[in-house]
Amino acid sequence: MNLVSIIGAIELGLVYSLLAFGTYISFRILNVADLTVDGSFVLGAAVSAMFAYSGMPVAGIALAVLCGGLAGMVTATLQTKMGIQPILSGILTMTGLYSINLMVMDGKANIPLLNKTNIFTYAEYMFNTKMYKILALLIIIGTVFAMLNWFFRTQLGLSIRATGDNEDMCRASSIDTDFIKMVGFSLSNAIVALSGALVAQMQQSADINMGSGMVVISFASIIIGSVIIKNKNITAGLLSVIIGSVIYRFIIALILTTSFPPSYLKLISSLVVVTALSLPNVKRKIEMNKLRKGRK
């Protein structure tokens, strides 16, 4: 790997760590695999791209976050008010968002942003270094990290964590778990949309199919990070997500330097997730077999 590939991997790892942040909230904290991610990621990219195309990149990012939060609220409403299963709720919202994203993009499958001003253009002027994208992303991620770390230690944040651990107990304690889920899923998809918004401006384009496989990518980042840093508390959990995302991108960059077909990358991502998820169970079975043999 050359220096350009390394910098590129770090940039992608950082920007996609926000995607993993959002998925971490639904998957680890609320204990639900929210498939809305594939749609809300593109929604954030679409909104951001359209505003950046019109010369308002900062407003585009702000509105992308808001739209992502609304998408999460729809998923939560389907679950809490309409009694639809969590996974199916995410699938329904994701499917509906495909058409909404096309509407946002004015019916176009791709929005090019070449020669258009974006927030990284401002960062280049501000930092005046080749590492301006990394510096800008570190500031954004550091801000989101600090806010989430603070939020999940507040009463509302602790209620979200408690709902994910034991929803029945929370209801028995007179906690409005429906409202808690609304907040949790809205926050989750708002951060996912922020990631999509930044990716669109960083790569100078938004595509209607760019959200394909985002759930698997975010799961891989979360699981790789949890192997390196044990999620004993919310701070360690969020930090592990960032590290896992960067490592995942380095793995992909290394694969691309070989003769391995790029079309197999999604298969590799799936295998990484399958391996990481199954390892604890495999270790447990091996230990049980050893104990059984020892008794004999």
Rank of each mutant, 00 (worst) to 15 (best):
N2H: 00
S5P: 05
I6S: 02
E11S: 11
G13A: 11
L19V: 08
A20L: 01
F21W: 06
F21P: 03
Y24L: 14
S26D: 06
F27I: 05
I29W: 08
L30T: 14
L30D: 04
A33E: 01
D34Y: 00
T36Q: 03
A45E: 09
V47C: 09
F51P: 11
A52L: 07
M56Q: 14
M56K: 10
V58D: 05
I61M: 14
I61A: 04
L63R: 06
A64R: 05
L66P: 02
G68S: 03
G69W: 13
L70F: 15
A71G: 13
V74N: 01
V74W: 05
Q79D: 13
I84N: 07
I84W: 03
Q85M: 12
Q85D: 15
N101D: 07
M105P: 07
I111S: 03
N118S: 15
I119F: 03
I119H: 04
I119D: 04
T121P: 09
A123C: 03
Y125V: 10
Y125F: 15
M126V: 05
N128D: 15
K130M: 07
Y132F: 12
L135E: 14
I139N: 09
I141W: 00
T143I: 15
T143H: 01
N149A: 13
F152N: 10
L156M: 14
G157S: 06
A162H: 10
T163F: 03
N166W: 04
N166H: 02
D168G: 04
D168N: 10
S174N: 12
S174F: 05
S174V: 12
D176E: 06
T177W: 02
F185T: 07
A193E: 07
L198G: 01
L198M: 12
Q201M: 06
Q203H: 14
Q203M: 15
S212H: 05
M214N: 11
M214E: 10
M214Y: 08
V215Y: 00
I217L: 15
S218D: 07
S221W: 08
I222D: 10
G225W: 11
T235L: 02
A236G: 12
G237Y: 02
G237D: 09
L239W: 00
V241W: 02
S245M: 02
V246H: 06
I247T: 13
Y248P: 00
R249W: 09
F250H: 04
I251Q: 02
I251G: 00
A253G: 05
P261N: 08
P262R: 01
K266L: 09
S269C: 12
V274M: 15
T275L: 13
S278P: 11
P280I: 10
N281Q: 15
K285S: 02
E287S: 15
